[in-house]
Amino acid sequence: MYNSKTPSLADLPSSRQLLRSTVIAAIVAAALLVAVVLPAEYGKDLTGMGRVLGLTEMGEIKTALAREAAADAAASARQREQPVASAPVASSQPVTASAAPPVVAQAPVPASVPGWRDELGFTLAPGQGIEIKLVMKEGEKARYAWKVEGGVVNYDTHGDGSGRSISYVKGRGLAADEGELVAAFTGNHGWFWRNRGKEDVRLVLRTAGQYSELKRPM
C-alpha cells in the first residue's frame, strides 16, 4: 500500500479560483465554436478566421452535400413503383419536378449493343430526376452501364423491398458509370439520377444479367 498525503485546505483551490477557471474554459469553448466549429461544419464565418484557415469552404461543401442528399432522399420517398411497359415501342411519361417539363423516356427495348439485354434512354432537364429499378432476388447479379451526353448527373444506387432499404453508392458530377449490382435482398434495386446542371442532358442505361423486370417508378 502506498500512503498519499492528504492535501490541506490551503492546497485546495478556492471557490473564486474554480469560478475563474470555469469562466475561462467557457470563453475558450465559445471562441472555438465561433472561430472553428461553425465555419468547418456549417459554413458560417462570423469572425473571418474560418476563411483565413480554409475552414469556411469545408463547411459550405458539407452543407451543400447535406442539402443535396436531403433533396434526393425526399424525391425518392415520394415516388411509387410502377412497371415500365415491356413492349418494344416508344412511350413517354412525366417524371419528377413540379415546375419543370416532363422527362421523356423510351420503353426498354433489346439493347443495340451486343452483350446487353435492355437499353433505356431519357432526357433530363435542369433540376429533373428519374429512378430506374431492376426486380431482383437476393443474391442475383446484374451488369449495368450508363452514360450521359451533354453534361453530368448526381446519382444514388440503392434498393428497397420487403420493408428493407439500402444505399449501395452515391456520386456527384459523373458522366458515366458501369459495374455489377448484387441484390442484398429480394426487391427493387437500381438508380436515381438528377441533373443539377443548367442544360438538358441525355442519359442511356444498358443492363443485363439476373433480373425479372425493369421498372420506372412514378
Rank of each mutant, 00 (worst) to 15 (best):
D160T: 06
A142W: 03
E178N: 14
V89D: 08
H158I: 00
A111L: 04
E131Q: 14
A145L: 09
Q106A: 14
S92A: 10
E68P: 02
E138H: 12
H189V: 05
S167W: 02
A74T: 03
S92K: 00
V169I: 15
T96L: 06
L181H: 10
G187R: 05
G129K: 02
P83G: 08
E178F: 05
T96E: 09
V89A: 03
G59C: 00
G171C: 14
V104D: 06
D156C: 06
P108A: 10
D118A: 08
A175L: 05
Q79N: 13
G115Q: 06
R202M: 08
P83T: 02
T157D: 11
S98C: 00
G139S: 13
A176P: 00
K133F: 09
G161R: 11
G127Y: 09
I166M: 11
D200F: 10
V95P: 07
S162T: 01
T157N: 08
G127V: 08
G115D: 02
P88Q: 10
V152Q: 01
N195G: 10
G187K: 04
Y168M: 09
G179H: 07
E119A: 08
A77S: 15
R202K: 15
R172D: 11
H158L: 06
V89W: 04
G187N: 02
G187D: 03
E178L: 08
H189M: 04
R172W: 05
E149W: 06
R196H: 10
S76E: 14
G127H: 12
A100V: 12
A100F: 12
W116S: 12
V153S: 09
A70I: 09
E178H: 06
V182I: 14
A90M: 03
S92H: 03
Q93K: 09
R78E: 13
V182P: 09
A183L: 08
R67P: 01
P88R: 10
V148L: 06
G187C: 02
N188T: 00
S98L: 12
Y155R: 08
R78Y: 03
V89Q: 07
E57R: 02
G197R: 03
L124Y: 12
G190Q: 13
V84I: 05
E138I: 00
Y155D: 15
T186F: 04
E138Y: 04
K170V: 08
D177K: 04
G129P: 06
H158N: 15
A100G: 12
A105E: 11
A107D: 13
G197N: 11
I130N: 10
T96N: 01
Q82G: 08
G163C: 01
G59V: 05
P108G: 09
W191Y: 01
G163H: 06
E81D: 11
P108Y: 07
A176S: 13
G190T: 11
D200L: 04
H158R: 14
A100D: 11
S165D: 12
S76R: 15
N195F: 08
G161Y: 10
A77I: 03
R78V: 03
A175V: 03
A75M: 05
V104Q: 10
A183E: 07
K141T: 14
K62P: 02
A70K: 15
V84D: 07
K198Y: 00
A125D: 10
R194Y: 00
T157K: 10
G139P: 13
L65R: 12
A125F: 02
K198V: 04
A99T: 04
V109F: 13
V104M: 08
E68S: 11
G121D: 07
Y155P: 00
G59A: 03
A97Y: 01
E178T: 03
R202T: 12
